[in-house]
Amino acid sequence: MAKERVSKLRIRKSNHALNRSAAGDFGINLMLLIFAAFMVIPLIYSIMQAFKPLNELFLYPPRFFVVSPTLKNFKDLFRLMGTSWVPFSRYIFNTAFIAIVGTFGNVMLSSLAAYSLAKLKYPGRKFLFNMIVYSLMFNSTVTGICNFLTISWLGLVDTYFAIIIPAWCSTTGLYLMKQFMESSVPDEVLESARLDGASEARVLWTIAMPMVKPAWLTLIIFSFQGLWGTGASIYIYSEQLKSFSYAMGQVLAGGIARSGAGAASGVIMMIVPILVFVVSQSNIIETMSTSGLKG
């Protein structure tokens, strides 16, 4: 009986996947297509807007697709950048500095802590990890008010570090890194390295870290994406310390005359994180596969 079933299964599997009906496949793919369109159309529309000349931007009835694409909006944007009070390169530097230093610190501190929580044994490490998990359950709105006090007491207001240092201890990254390290670095490898006389720092740096490459790539990308979008911050009021995203927002806020340049700035802001994701997708997915929370 059972044998018969198995052979039936084999036959079915050869022309169709297990437990899948053709009608179901059709329905599901249709839904997938509709929702994919819903997700992508606004993004495509914003790209279209960026390449439309002024008369097409204010056409009635409005058209979705661009008819005679132009780079004028991008040229306008760069011209506007050239005339801003603070040189535009300064905004780019600000964002780059915040993103690079913030990401570097976050990856370093998270790696050290994740290794310690995942692979070293000492009293209290479960408690520390539980605190990290609880911290994932609320967002920074709750801590915002007191952080404003802390940051002013520390004298960090109106410096890059008001944004950078809180980014160093973002817990999502540590959580992902710890889970990945726990499941993809075997204890025996670490133990044999220790028996060979390697110091803990050496074990971490030359054995554990190369094995968790997908995890730290993911951390780099998440942290970078978060910091790239840093907009106006309550901690920073000097114009020359403000971010690229803030400056782009100012272009957009310039009213109807700048609609074209505004659309171009929107495209620049969105294209960078998307490209970064395209390049790193497989590493991120690999990291996510170990992200589960037991219990």
């Binding site: 501190l109 998270s110 050290l112 802590a113 290794y115 310690s116 929580l117 070293l120 044994k121 000492y122 009293p123 209290g124 490490r125 520390l128 605190m131 990290i132 911290s135 709750v142 801590t143 915002g144 008010i145 007191c146 952080n147 802390t150 240092i165 809180p166 160093w168 201890c169 817990t171 540590l174 803990e200 971490l204």
Partner: peptide
């Protein structure tokens, strides 16, 4: 055990100190 695991505390400390200042303390 804590003495034996001091390397663990040492590695986790930088993150945890900042985490305490910017997340635990504010709550």
């Amino acid at each position: 055990e804590m003495r034996r695991g001091k390397m663990g505390y040492f590695l986790v400390a930088p993150f945890m100190i900042l985490f305490f200042i910017f997340t635990v303390l504010p709550v």
